[in-house]
Design a binder for these strands. Structure first.
Lengths: 76, 76
DNA sequence: CGTGTAAGGAATTCTGACACG
DNA sequence: CGTGTAAGGAATTCTGACACG
């Protein structure tokens, strides 16, 4: 599940987010996809889950820096 | 593990096979990737395992039609 | 701040074919 | 039979920027 194998397109399908949102979350250091030689991002299923959580938190009123500080997004 | 999320490039990395081999195995009905709107193949981790088994069998002297007839590649 | 979009380029994947054998 | 390759096109992804606010 930690294998970084998905390109951004399928991640969009799986999360319902836009490429723009995903790239922004990466820019803010909330997710860490790996890169192919060509520069394309590769995500894992874990990243997909995390991205969904990030978006939820943002919709709940949190900010990207809040999420970064906390490290984990979920309290369990 | 059955989620068809990987494009052919990563499958090549994961299996060590070439795109040509993977497409040929699909042509011979040994694997069944899904397609994106744009026509790109998407594979699952299960497909990756199957592809490795297919290639092993072929190296052992089997033919694609032998593999197709047997259905399963592994006897367990 | 978080996200949308148009812009141009680079990398990825696709198909059908010729080749060897 | 199974696989390599060059060919041209179409789809995908990338970055930096302007926009709103």
């Amino acid at each position: 599940m930690k294998d970084k194998v998905m390109s951004i397109g399928i991640v969009c399908d799986l999360t319902g987010l836009t490429e723009r949102q995903i790239r922004y979350y990466e820019e803010k250091q909330l997710v860490f996809p790996v890169r192919t030689k060509g520069g394309a991002r590769k995500f894992s299923f874990e990243d997909v889950e995390r991205l969904k959580e990030i978006n939820e938190k943002l919709r709940d009123g949190f900010h990207t820096f809040d999420l970064k500080k906390s490290g984990r997004l979920c309290c369990k």
